[in-house]
């Protein structure tokens, strides 16, 4: 394959390049999700973020998410790129592109992808504030690890 569909990178992400990866003559819709670095979270002001990944496994898990999407929504094409390293406010941390013959699966699959990234992909975010720093975990606040393992297999079929 010329382009990697699931990738962890250290440089800025081109949204256009992800769109190109999922283009298809049978597609009637392409959705993109662009995750950016937010300045204010609660009462804390972020100066910049640092992302770290277990790169080979993270790319495998992104590919797994793509596979799950293909099984749930037929004829979809998925590309995901996540950036690591230091990111400034407003910079792009993740881009997800999904193409599909019809728009609804493209929207649904795209949302599914970002939710799964937050569950199973080994990437960590460290917030740097004006007066401190901390690694952030369990953003979903649903304690997905209590059972000892994240929901790796897809369970609910909608």
């Amino acid at each position: 394959m010329r382009n990697k569909m699931f990738e962890i990178v250290e440089d800025s992400i081109s949204v256009e390049s992800l769109i190109e990866k999922v283009e298809d003559r049978n597609a009637g819709a392409i959705t993109t999700f662009i995750g950016t670095v937010r300045e204010i979270t609660g009462e804390k002001k972020t100066v910049y973020l640092e992302y770290q990944a277990y790169k080979p496994m993270a790319e495998k898990m992104l590919a797994q998410i793509g596979k799950e999407i293909n099984q749930r929504w037929s004829d979809t094409k998925v590309a995901i790129t996540h950036r690591i390293g230091s990111l400034d406010i407003s910079e792009i941390a993740v881009v997800i592109a999904v193409s599909s013959p019809h728009r609804k699966p493209a929207y649904q699959a795209n949302e599914y992808a970002i939710e799964r990234i937050k569950q199973i992909v080994p990437i960590w975010k460290k917030e740097q504030w004006e007066n401190g720093e901390a690694w952030i975990g369990d953003q979903l606040e649903n304690v997905p690890y209590r059972a000892g393992k994240p929901d790796i297999k897809d369970e609910d079929h909608d």
């Binding site: 996540h82 970002i114 990234i117 569950q119 960590w124 975010k125 975990g137």
Partner: peptide, 10 residues
């Protein structure tokens, strides 16, 4: 082996 603390990507 990798120890994977709660993830926070996205």
């Amino acid at each position: 082996v990798a120890i994977i603390p709660p993830v926070s990507g996205g």
